[in-house]
């Protein structure tokens, strides 16, 4: 599925300073019954966001109008648990293009990159600084610069660089995906397959 190219993102951010946010929280299993990739944003963090009777929980950050933006900032070990790509879809569909944390679970990170969300891993100290900056001013902006692999807190000017492999970076910046790449090397795969013992 095509996604928007990612180069430099400048936005306010939504803080979620909770550790081990797992994919069952991001999107509970009962919302995985669709056969199309549509409307997952409505159920993002469903059980943290709504009461059993579907009224919003006022103390949850997504229900607090002072916070908004295209960047989600989460606590350590974000995205642990299931392989459901629906978790990344829900985040994308809600309107986020970037998730910042001090640590990501593997599958979530891969899924995000595959659908055009940039996971930015920063140091624990820098993560704290981001949380502090947003706490001080909910309108504080972050700048995520993919070409330079750098994230900056614009209100304080503090920045840190982040890692991403060259291949994925190229894909994100150009809106390419892995399937395009693989389709182009089918003959090589076919040759490989004939050699397999299974």
């Amino acid at each position: 599925m095509a996604y928007d190219k990612f180069t430099i993102l400048r936005s306010t951010a939504v803080p979620l300073p909770i550790e081990n946010v797992d994919t069952d929280q991001i999107i509970p299993a009962r919302f995985l019954k669709a056969t199309k990739r549509e409307g997952f944003g409505d159920n993002l963090f469903r059980d943290w966001r709504y009461n059993g009777d579907d009224t919003p929980k006022q103390d949850f950050v997504l229900n607090n109008p002072i916070y908004s933006g295209k960047i989600l900032v989460g606590g350590h070990n974000f995205g642990s648990g299931s392989s459901r790509e629906h978790a990344a879809w829900a985040i994308y569909d809600y309107g986020f293009r970037c998730v910042v944390s001090s640590f990501f679970a593997d599958i979530f990170k891969g899924n995000s990159l595959n659908i055009g969300i940039l996971p930015v891993q920063v140091s624990a100290a820098f993560l704290d600084k981001i949380f502090l900056a947003i706490e001080a001013d909910p309108n504080a902006e972050l700048e995520v610069n993919l070409p330079d692999q750098k994230i900056t807190i614009l209100s304080t000017g503090e920045s840190e660089s982040f890692d991403i492999n060259g291949y994925k970076k190229h894909n994100l910046m150009n809106g390419f995906d892995d399937i395009d790449y693989l389709q182009a090397m089918k003959n090589e795969i076919r040759e490989f397959e004939t050699e397999r013992i299974y």
Binding site: S83, A88, I107, G110, Y167, I179, Y181, L182, I189
Partner: peptide
């Protein structure tokens, strides 16, 4: 190992996925 839906599509269409070696 477990994969996401984009990767399911990759395997169906090319029997391969893109994986950095852990």
């Amino acid at each position: 190992f477990g994969i996401g839906t984009s990767e399911v599509e990759m395997v169906l269409s090319s029997q391969c996925i893109m994986q950095p070696k852990p």
